[in-house]
Write a protein that binds this DNA or RNA. Structure first.
Length: 926
DNA sequence: ACCGCCGGGTGCC
DNA sequence: ACCGCCGGGTGCC
């Protein structure tokens, strides 16, 4: 090697004034790069990926400005760029010629060139210190083939803006600023609210031109409904057709991506699979089972062993002809041996050879012979597996489908396979779960289906280098409830992304739960190029959408449309509803309080109203929100049963010690949550998960409020009352108390008007038709406990399902309830929040909603557990509402709230705040 | 690269 | 001639 340096190497600061130079006489850059970089396993795309995920999130970033830069060294690299194409900028601190080097790469991670030295030096400082994220777009090409201009944009946190701008200016690079973009919490928040609504529409109307139907393979025992045949047809097409992924088009010889302006000679890798986002109850599981059996390689059905029982006395195996007599199914062999039919001695093999033929001869048989011949003969449904082998590049030896599901629905998968696969078909389904699971890769990869849970998968992934599931080339990976993997940093998500598969599917009723970020994980799993790389996703979709860009949203919509099939129960196909469910009637039964109940209620109401009046007058209603909720809660509890009221909680007023404050906050939290009410988190607008209470007594999801705090840092304020909040001051409900809550005293039990109304209904029903089953639903688990006494007294057989039960018990309870046995329970006491999605309670045809919920959707969800596919009877829903009470007003607000959600486009946080105050006023008749 | 830069050849017009 | 000018060789970081 001959390196000639005209000037001695110097400090980075002096580098600009002096020049240095290398000779290339006997040394090519290829050698240099292979020795330098090939020792590292990191690929360029991984480097880009890593760079993008380390940097600040696109959400909170502001644009510092633009700068026109130069990409040099084009002729040394193969990466090509088109006009308007986005490029990635990656720091190369290990570059032997310049540790400030900034590499330029195209969407596919192919190197295009480098940023010119001086500019790179300035950028390196900014990039290395995480002051800004720099993005590049190549707007125009110059005619020469050595350099090209690149438009650089600098993005980062507001507080770094001036530092970056000044630094660049000192180096002689002026950042051109367009209009000033200021993003505050409320900014993000209101655009988030808008998005949430836009998302609701995102998955709507995805039915167009997906209306072909496909019959399932013979092995599927359950006839598919028309919409399921459509889904099957669509899924098969997504797996088999080689249509271009969204935004790709053929332009002459090249394939062109209209979003990133990238083009390539090769066909872009197609996405085999997609998102099946049908509403729950439309049969995603059955459709998936049908897909597994129907669409093996080359669109042929999965070759499965099918046991054929010949009708007695008619058929008789006379001889076995096999082109390869080496293998005979052991089951058949036993018969052959007995009858001495085999000429040669075959080896045993469980897999039936494709061209083995069995000749059957009819013969009259004696009784014993008939019994003998009732042996099982095994046939093959699909022939020609081997011949298909050589034809395509795909690995046709991949056989198994891996299904990953939450633990709670694991048993459902097994049941559904049992139920929908014809009993005479032998499908190898292996449950990869439990400590004694078979970890043999050979064993697993020869199964037809392997089912496991997200937890098992990620546990395996974390523990050992050669996780069995990660070592297998799957034919197909299916993520059930795929929205579970929405956090890309979670171990679970990484484990899922690392799976090797030809085809990938996501099943989910709610593909986007919180934000557009959720979507990235799904696309990354599906390997939808180029969006599986975070930078391109951020730049092309996420940032434009979060900043309210219409085209960004349109692009996202197009993207989603291409890979998603979503139908709701109300969707129509050719003017007819997708599924015809039995009629559902909802009636409200007014309950009159007894005199003593009314007296107690009015007492509590007057007291509460005075308190709230005071808050309204002081303008402190939101500051005392928890207290207000507690008052409302007490009233709601009065409506159900007097014993629901917890011991009067002390007033928050003056809190002497921190321990005392904590005690009182927990008490507040208890009154909000413990009884099972459905409180809404004001950040995500959903029911609270992992509830925490702030020192200003507002309840949020822990992740939501933590994010708010980390975004706003020291200046973090409570989104509801703008008091200062700190992560360290968030209080959780202690687990020990959780358990205490459930204990109740069953001696001196008393009834209530609502209990009477329910019992009257149940007794009447039992009289009319003893086989009718009912769900009795309440938000208050303690109310369910109270209801147990009269049910027992009247000799009802009942079960109970609430959030405290573990999975095993839940499954058993549901099984018991769903059973049609004569002595099976006819009533299920159900806590409104228990189970959430996926429960199948079709045995019930009557639903009694004991108390109104804040969120009408929760009620609907609950009703849907029995008003769904498989329901044979008309469904009757009875809502008990106490006359002249807070419950009546809640119903009115429910309706208003639903309107609000529907029209909420543009509703801001402050709108919501005032609407909350209005709600409270209305509830208390102020 | 239809540039910039380097360094050797050259030297009135 | 310790300059200027010309024209060939050359070229990312």
């Amino acid at each position: 090697m001959c390196v000639r340096v005209s000037l001695s190497q110097c400090s980075p600061g002096a580098m600009f004034s002096r020049r240095w130079r290398f000779g290339w006489d006997s040394y090519s850059e290829v050698d240099l790069f292979t020795t330098r970089y090939d020792t590292s396993t990191e690929t360029l795309s991984q480097a880009i990926q890593a760079a993008a995920s380390e940097g600040p999130d696109a959400d909170g970033s502001v644009l510092f400005g633009h700068l026109r830069g130069t990409v040099v060294g084009l002729k040394y690299y193969t990466g090509v760029v088109n006009q308007g194409e986005m490029v990635g900028l990656v720091r190369q601190p290990q570059n032997p010629y310049d540790r400030n080097a900034v590499m330029v790469a195209n969407i596919y991670g192919n190197q295009v060139g480098h940023i010119k030295r001086e500019l790179a030096a300035a950028m390196a400082h900014v990039m290395d210190n995480n002051l800004a994220k720099v993005e590049g777009v190549v707007h125009s090409r110059t005619t020469n083939s050595f350099t090209m201009p690149v438009m650089l944009s600098f993005w980062g946190k507001e507080e770094n803006k001036s530092a970056v701008t000044e630094f660049m200016a000192r180096r002689g690079y002026k950042l051109n600023t367009g209009f000033k973009v200021v993003i505050t919490f409320f900014h993000i928040y209101s655009s988030f609210v808008q998005l949430k609504n836009a998302f609701d529409n995102l998955f709507e109307g995805l039915m167009e031109s997906k209306d072909g139907e496909k019959e399932a393979a013979e092995a599927v025992g359950t006839p598919l409904l028309p919409h399921q045949k459509q889904a099957l047809s669509w899924m098969c097409a997504r797996e088999n057709k080689s249509s271009l992924p969204p935004f790709w088009e053929k332009r002459g010889e090249l394939y062109y991506n209209s979003l990133t302006c990238f083009s390539a000679k090769e066909v872009p890798e197609r996405v085999c699979g997609g998102i099946l986002a049908d509403d729950m109850g439309l049969g995603k599981t059955l459709t998936t089972i049908a897909l597994i059996l129907t669409n093996f390689h080359k669109g042929r059905p999965l070759p499965v062993e099918k046991c054929v029982r010949f009708s007695v006395g008619e058929c008789y195996i006379s001889s076995v002809h096999a082109t390869t007599p080496a293998c005979v199914h052991p089951c058949l062999l036993s018969t052959c041996r007995r009858r001495s039919l085999l000429k040669s001695k075959p080896k045993l093999n469980h897999r039936w050879p494709p061209n083995l033929k069995v000749t059957l001869v009819t013969k009259s048989l004696s009784k014993t012979e008939k019994d003998d011949i009732l042996c099982v003969c095994v046939c093959v449904l699909c022939e020609g597996v081997e011949s298909a082998m050589a034809e395509t590049a795909d690995d046709l030896s991949a056989r198994a489908t891996l299904i990953i599901s939450p633990l709670s629905v694991l048993s459902n998968w097994l049941d559904q396979f049992e139920q929908h696969v014809r009993p005479d078909v032998k499908l190898n389904v292996y449950l990869y779960y439990g400590s004694d699971r078979n970890r043999s890769k050979k064993f697993l990869s020869t199964q037809d289906v392997v089912i496991t849970t997200y937890n098992v998968l990620s546990a395996d992934f974390g523990v050992s280098v050669d996780s069995p599931l990660h070592g297998i080339s799957w034919l197909r990976v299916v993520l059930d409830e795929g929205h579970i993997i929405r956090n890309p940093n979670a171990q679970m998500s990484k484990a899922v992304l690392d799976l090797k598969a030809q085809r990938r599917w996501i099943l989910s009723g709610t593909p986007i739960q919180n934000s557009i970020k959720d979507m990235w994980m799904l696309l990354a799993f599906l390997r939808l190029k180029p969006f599986d790389v975070r930078e391109w996703w951020n730049r092309v979709i996420q940032r434009p959408v979060t900043q309210g860009d219409r085209t960004g949203l349109q692009n996202l919509q197009t993207l989603v449309k291409c890979i998603t099939l979503r139908r709701t129960k109300s969707s129509e196909v050719n003017g007819r509803p997708l599924v015809s469910l039995p009629e559902k009637t909802v009636c409200v039964e007014q309950v009159e309080l007894s005199r003593s109940e009314r007296e107690e209620y009015e007492l509590a109401r007057t007291e509460g109203r005075n308190t709230i009046r005071r808050y309204v007058a002081e303008g402190t209603i939101l500051r005392n929100y928890a207290d207000v909720l507690a008052i409302l809660m007490r009233l709601r509890q009065h409506c159900c049963h007097p014993d629901l009221l917890s011991k009067t909680s002390s007033d928050l007023g003056a809190s002497a010690t921190p321990a005392e404050l904590r005690e009182r906050l927990i008490e507040k939290l208890r009154s909000v949550l413990a009884s099972g009410s459905d409180e809404e988190c004001s950040v995500c607008l959903d029911s609270v998960r992992l509830p925490v209470i702030t020192h200003c007594a507002h309840v949020y999801c822990r992740p939501c409020i933590t994010e708010v705090i980390s975004t706003e840092q020291e200046t973090a304020k409570c989104p509801l009352c703008r008091n200062e909040i700190k992560t360290s001051e968030l209080v959780e409900f202690p687990q020990e108390l959780m358990e205490e809550e459930s204990s109740t005293n069953s001696e001196n039990w008393r009834t209530s008007s609502k209990v009477q109304s329910l019992m009257g209904n149940l007794l009447r029903l039992r009289c009319d038709d003893g086989s009718i089953k009912s769900l009795v639903v309440s938000q208050f688990t303690r109310f369910l406990t109270i209801l147990e006494t009269p049910l027992r007294e009247h000799g009802f057989r009942f079960v109970r399902l609430d959030g405290t039960m573990n999975q095993k018990r839940r499954t058993r309870v549901i099984e018991e309830f769903q059973s049609s046995a004569a002595d099976s329970p006819t009533v299920m006491l159900l806590s409104l929040k228990a189970g959430g999605v996926g429960l199948n309670l079709t045995a019930a045809s009557h639903v009694f909603l004991m108390d109104p919920a804040w969120n009408p959707a929760t009620e609907e969800q609950c009703i849907d557990r029995c008003h769904r596919l498989g329901q044979m009877r008309k469904v009757v829903v009875t809502k008990f509402i106490v006359k002249d009470s807070v419950e009546e007003k809640m119903v009115a607000i429910q309706r208003k709230k639903q309107d609000l959600v529907e029209k909420a486009f543009g509703s801001t946080n402050s709108d919501r705040k005032t609407s909350r105050i209005d709600d409270i006023k209305a509830l208390m008749e102020l």
